[in-house]
């Protein structure tokens, strides 16, 4: 395991800058998750670290060695690709053994058998080891692809949405498993996902990328509670953060320059109200099984928040909404600190 440093890395494809002056240090043993919308440059970032793309500017070091121009094989990284790319002419077992048989490593066959067996056990694909790669289901392929990275002990694991085609149960199992591997082995991992649960639960730090630029890098808690901008704030939270003009709902008093209020479920207080104090109407309630999404209209604006399962709110009810310690953003979308007196301790949520 090793520290990986990208400094000022830029990668252009013709005119498009897929990655632009990106600075990122992945500390030894750290688990960094990159979040960002499609086309933001997440995959390109991983490919740059893996040596599959050469940066136009900037440098990359792994464990102190400058690898900016090194071949992929010389970098000692493991990569789980977004499209699981198993070798179709090999069995699942041979796919898992493939990296260990490389000229760079040449692990003895009985050692390979042991390592592949362990990984297959962990990923629950032991029964499928003799199948051709093309005779596996999508989820099995993806597990073999993850396994092909995990059989190695590289300086860094690069994972591009590795859990995306698995069912919810397996995904949460593997999430824990990956987190455990990272903690037990002190593995360094750079991980791309769209799934905020994965980001929040696994990351030591989260990096939010937009159009090839690193917008904010911080612990999951920092990113969640102190997003640098509207853009970052909209990346996290389920249901997504509600953005409203300042003054629409009563709050503790907006700071000067605040134009937009960001309100997540925990920032909204909702109560059934008599016509006089009511400022909003319940549109409908969406039952998602584990949670209920409450759609509310305030003036021209629509909000989504979580409803208490026991609440007796129903469609058409008039309610009074107020804000507790929300986020404020200025006209350009940057977050500005709330004025002091509005700080109300987070309590019963």
């Amino acid at each position: 395991m090793a520290e990986v440093v990208l400094s000022g890395v830029t990668k252009r494809f013709k005119t498009v800058a897929a990655v632009e002056s990106l600075d990122l240090t992945v500390h030894d043993g750290e688990f960094i998750v990159l979040l960002g919308p499609t086309g933001a440059g997440k995959t390109t970032t991983l490919r740059l670290v893996g040596g599959l793309e050469r940066p136009d500017e900037g440098s990359i070091t792994i464990g102190g060695h400058d690898v900016t121009h090194a071949a992929p094989a010389a970098r000692d990284v493991a990569f789980v690709f977004q499209q699981y790319s198993l070798y179709p002419h090999l069995s699942a077992y041979d796919n898992l053994a493939f990296p260990l048989r490389s000229p760079a490593r040449r692990v003895p066959e009985d050692e390979i058998r042991k390592r592949v067996g362990e990984i297959a056990e962990m990923l629950r694909i032991s029964a499928k080891l003799q199948n051709r790669a093309t005779q596996l289901s999508g989820g099995e392929m993806q597990r073999v692809a993850i396994g092909r990275a995990l059989v190695r002990r590289p300086s860094i694991y690069l994972m591009d949405e590795p859990l995306s085609s698995l069912d919810a149960k397996l995904r949460s199992d593997l999430r824990l498993e990956l987190k455990r591997i990272q903690q037990d082995l002190g593995a360094t991992i750079l991980y791309v996902t769209h799934d905020q649960t994965e980001a929040m639960t696994m990351a030591v730090r989260i990096g939010v990328i937009e159009s090839g630029r690193m917008i904010q890098l911080g612990t999951p808690r920092e990113i969640y509670t102190a997003p640098a901008s509207v853009y970052v704030a909209t990346r996290l939270g389920q249901p997504a953060i509600n953005l409203l003009p300042v003054g629409l709902l009563p709050d503790g008093g907006a700071p000067t320059g605040g134009k937009t209020v960001g309100a997540r479920t925990e920032n909204l207080r909702i109560a059934k109200a008599a016509n006089g104090s009511a400022n909003a109407t319940v549109d409908w309630i969406e039952h998602l099984g584990d949670q209920n999404h409450l759609h509310v209209t305030v003036g021209d604006h629509k909000l989504v928040t979580l409803a208490d399962p026991e609440s007796d709110l129903a469609k058409g009810d008039r309610v009074s909404l107020s804000l507790v310690d929300p986020l404020y953003f200025d006209a350009s979308g940057k977050r500005i600190a709330a004025s002091g007196k509005a700080r109300i301790p987070q309590g019963n949520g």
């Binding site: 893996g50 040596g51 071949a71 992929p72 493991a78 070798y87 493939f98 092909r148």
Partner: peptide, 26 residues
């Protein structure tokens, strides 16, 4: 798909080796 060779190169093979091990069989 190029991804096969890319995967092989990440897995520690040179391009020539990846060509022989991954491209030729396919």
């Amino acid at each position: 798909p190029r991804e096969y060779e890319e995967a092989a190169m990440i897995d520690g093979y040179s391009r020539l080796h990846a060509f022989v091990k991954v491209v030729l069989p396919q």
